[in-house]
Design a protein around this nucleic acid. Sequence first.
DNA 1: GTCTATACGTTGATAGAC
DNA 2: GTCTATCAACGTATAGAC
Lengths: 216, 216
Amino acid sequence: MTFEIPAHDGKPAGRIRQKNEEVILKAAEDEFARHGFKGTSMNTIALKAGLPKANLHYYFTNKLGLYIAVLSNIIELWDRTFNTLTAADDPAQALSRYIRAKMEFSRQQPQASRVFAMEIISGGACLTEYFTQDYRIWFQGRAAVFQAWIDAGKMDPVDPVHLIFLLWGSTQHYADFATQICRVSGRSRLTRQDMQDASDNLIRIILKGCGLTPTV
Amino acid sequence: MTFEIPAHDGKPAGRIRQKNEEVILKAAEDEFARHGFKGTSMNTIALKAGLPKANLHYYFTNKLGLYIAVLSNIIELWDRTFNTLTAADDPAQALSRYIRAKMEFSRQQPQASRVFAMEIISGGACLTEYFTQDYRIWFQGRAAVFQAWIDAGKMDPVDPVHLIFLLWGSTQHYADFATQICRVSGRSRLTRQDMQDASDNLIRIILKGCGLTPTV
DNA sequence: GTCTATACGTTGATAGAC
DNA sequence: GTCTATCAACGTATAGAC
């Protein structure tokens, strides 16, 4: 009788592994989103995942490893979703599309947004690499696109860098502060329609504010 | 020889008490801002405050009490700062003033903003009271002001509720995500000038986006 | 009012039976 | 591959000397 080697490359290694890792990552994401890295316990994650605590260490060596895995998943998902926006695009259309995509992300993956937010508020030590590489390139690329549009007279000469922060902040808000938004508007949760209204409003104000005409 | 009674009403009770409570609250705010409620330990706060751990329990009974005290301080500061904005005001001026005030708060009290943000992301259980009373009243009052301006034809018919979220989210972002902003823009910290530029840009885009003319 | 010593639960992590 | 049993370290909180 032979046992499979618990290698992380594991092609034949298994269906079970894959499924368990998924369950653990999901449970971990939920907990990290609520309590941050330090505030989350492996025990709670294990309970939520329905697995004995020791299994988490079997799959992820230690707490930091699990946390990094969660963050990596989020960044990968992020990159896959927001690699659009080029100078050749129509500004109004491209901005609208970006805002809708980011809001859709806030709606479907609020936990991911929150883990990210918590990590940054906590100092973002685990994201140093990301911010000095991939994100920085993405960021400067987008700022250049906005600048190109401005130079071509397609939009007002706003500050491209601060425009990105505005897009980021205003959309991120609907994921991170959903609790506050619900409480104050008397809802129990944000519906698809709420998010639609929010997107419409953001697009309307930000596009007009940049001297662009919304294309419905 | 008599000892002063450690009552929280304490008029004559003391200079020492007042000073120590201040030091503890400041240290606690810093820690809670970085690690949230669960992730913060009394020991770390005590070390940062330069006091023995037992003293914290003398002044604040327990961890939750200390946390609530920090939150209360923040809300009080908040209320004192943002009770402006009435229907009689000039929309452009009032909005500009609000954005500048909120950004100034993000600059001078980033830790307060972060404690608040962490608490809300964590579910905001400790803020239920606040959100079902004071804040809700403030919120509906401001929404009514915007609606009055819209009805008077002074600004575009944007969604008042989502406008408040836009104001909130875009300004809050400069406190909560300062780390990210610094990393990506290659700065070590946000200067007064950075925040000034950010405010100018927000005012420019949001006011124009609402059909208002910025009054410099 | 202040601080040392300590009680006692929870934490991350591992050893080793199955 | 899975899970129980266990450990040392750290968590909150308090008792009681000063």
